[in-house]
Simulated assay, not measured.
Amino acid sequence: MNLSIIRIGPTENRSGMQYHAQYSLRSAGMANTRTRTLLAILLVFAIMLPLGAVGQAEHASVVQNEVSIVDSRGVVVSLPRYPDRIISLSPNITETLFALGIGERLVGRTDYCDYPSETQYIESMGDLFTPSIEKIVSAAPDLVIISNLGQSQTIDAIETAGIPVAFIDEPGTMEGTFRIIEQVGAITGTESQAKKIVLSLQETLEAVESKLSPEVHPTVYYVAGFGEWGDFTATGDTFIHDIIVSAGAVNIAENAVNWSYQLELILANDPDIIILPPMWGSTFEQTRTEFVNHPSYSSLTAVKQDRIITIDSNLMERQGPRSAQAVQQLAQKIVDILR
């Protein structure tokens, strides 16, 4: 308690001193009571301020979680918050979501979404081109992500059902791959992880490039299809072409488009190396045996010298977090087979 200072004049007696002292003490007590009351009020007000600030922060957080991107159609896709329930209708998008660490948000995929192995526990919505709209609606997703393999009528049907769709498709290059990962990161609230993945891809590609021989650029032919149905390859307008170039090789079909190629051109260009992924439903050995024994290809130098490389076609074809790994593997296989 703070005591008031009492000044006693000459005419003041002892009783006066006692009175003034008692009065001053009471006044001091009352003042302190008022002070304590005021402090209590201020304390309550001070406590309420942080609570109000917390409320504002929570509100700001909700506002901050509102997300929108401009997808590859030029359409603004807006969500009230980052999606918790996602359906991916593209294998490369499915791989990207798992790489971003949010595979648990997936509530739907396609029959072809087979990597990583955890995808087997996610319900399939059907094939790439005609997924079940009924299943998609029943899964109640916050967002459906689809890439270049999707059909416009599928997108229209999903959006008509009131479900947001993000169409994410970029050019078939490594730079396009980076943008796909960044776009998926932006719409799912995982931008920092997306940046880490892109940085890792860039570092891997730089490491591969630093080891490439400036003098050795073998010609290669990628077999996407062969035999009675015609010859199909990774033409210059495909993502696989970019992987081939990044691995230090020359694609003999770089000037062709739309996956189609002519047998006469294969024979005329006579590639140094054949890249032969297993055909659908076959093992590599089965595919290799069929290819080398086919009369159309038996005269190729690569066949005669057994310069045939096998590689996972999914690794080569999907623009996503494993794309740099595809370049790395192909570059090493080329070096090994030329030794």
Rank of each mutant, 00 (worst) to 15 (best):
G126S: 11
D127Y: 12
L128V: 07
F129S: 11
F129A: 06
T130G: 02
S132D: 08
S132T: 06
E134A: 09
K135S: 13
I136A: 10
I136S: 11
I136Q: 08
A139L: 10
A139F: 04
A139M: 12
A139G: 13
A139P: 13
A140E: 15
A140M: 09
P141K: 05
P141S: 10
P141R: 01
P141V: 07
D142E: 12
D142M: 08
L143E: 00
V144Y: 00
I145K: 03
I145Q: 01
I146L: 10
S147M: 09
S147N: 14
N148C: 05
N148A: 14
N148Y: 07
L149Q: 15
L149P: 00
Q151I: 05
S152P: 06
Q153F: 11
Q153H: 13
Q153S: 10
Q153K: 12
T154P: 07
T154N: 10
D156R: 13
A157W: 05
A157K: 05
I158S: 01
E159W: 06
E159K: 05
T160R: 15
A161T: 12
G162D: 10
G162H: 09
I163R: 06
I163W: 05
I163C: 14
V165P: 01
V165H: 03
F167K: 01
F167C: 09
F167D: 00
D169G: 06
D169T: 10
P171E: 11
G172M: 15
G172W: 13
T173I: 14
M174A: 03
E175L: 15
E175W: 11
G176A: 09
G176Y: 07
T177P: 07
F178V: 01
I180Y: 00
I180A: 05
I181T: 02
E182A: 05
E182S: 06
G185F: 02
A186T: 07
A186P: 01
I187K: 04
T188A: 04
G189T: 06
E191L: 12
E191T: 14
E191Y: 13
S192Y: 12
K195M: 08
I197Q: 04
I197K: 00
V198E: 00
L199N: 09
L199E: 07
S200P: 02
S200Y: 05
L201P: 02
